[in-house]
């Protein structure tokens, strides 16, 4: 939420977010220049993240739990584009549904748009290399993208209270994460299952989309696919 992070952490998380966002914009421009037909698909992926991540549940941590919906975008377009889409979505959430904020945008983008999806993408690539099906790969990717988002959020909150009120870091992290876990682990499982079903349907209806997904690089700073 707006106002939760100290100025120091607002700046730190914006600095962490900046290179991913800038390379994401470059990658996005490249995709839209080379494949203009992908524009609608990218916008729909963003709208999808907005829709899914707006289903929030209060979680006793100064934040809230919700599915992240980033699994699909990261698998199709990579971490950079996912960071850009997540930033746009997070701005909409802050403005339209009082969820998140401008000063916490960097921290929210790092957890929901960069690190969570990056871990999800690593699992997706690994499982696809092992010839796992889209169902299993998407389940694991979406599960970890969601769960790691909240591990990072708990870490961010713990670092913040450590510097602002001199709290013990480990105690704060375990408190924040254990409270998140109550809502987030079941949510991550459900999100994984739903996205796995989603992938299964897409394999039947639009198999061409997974060709794009399998060409993606894990490296968010890769210039070409």
């Amino acid at each position: 939420m707006e106002g939760y992070l100290d100025p120091l952490w607002c700046v730190v998380w914006f600095i962490v977010m900046a290179p991913f966002f800038i390379f994401g914009v470059i990658k996005l421009r490249q995709i839209l220049r080379d494949h203009p037909d992908q524009k609608m698909m990218v916008a729909l992926s963003g709208a999808f993240i907005f829709l899914i991540s707006s289903l929030k549940l209060p979680s006793v941590t100064g934040s809230c739990s919700h599915p992240t919906g980033t699994g699909v975008a990261v698998v199709f377009y990579g971490v950079g584009v996912c960071a850009v889409l997540s930033t746009i979505v997070l701005i909409f959430q802050a403005l339209l549904i009082a969820h998140g904020g401008f000063t916490t945008l960097g921290a929210n983008c790092v957890s929901m748009g960069i690190i969570g999806p990056l871990v999800g993408l690593v699992f997706w690539k690994f499982l696809r290399k092992l010839n796992a099906g889209a169902f299993i790969s998407m389940f694991v990717a979406a599960f970890f993208a969601d769960l790691i988002t909240y591990v990072v959020t708990a870490l961010q909150m713990a670092l913040n209270v450590m510097t602002s009120v001199n709290a013990d870091f480990m105690a704060a992290f375990s408190n924040f994460f254990s409270v998140y876990a109550v809502t987030q682990i079941p949510l991550a499982v459900v999100e994984g299952l739903i996205f796995a079903m989603f992938a299964q349907y897409l394999v039947t209806a639009r198999p061409d989309m997974f060709e794009i997904a399998d060409r993606n690089s894990i490296n968010p700073f890769a210039r070409s696919e």
């Binding site: 209060p58 006793v60 809230c64 209270v161 009120v165 001199n166 105690a171 409270v179």
Partner: peptide
């Protein structure tokens, strides 16, 4: 809903004071 989250969140921060 945002206010409920803020109340809970502020409460969480208030209970994590300096152990010393």
């Amino acid at each position: 809903e945002a206010i409920v989250i803020m109340v809970l969140g502020s409460g969480m921060i208030s209970i994590m004071g300096d152990p010393n």
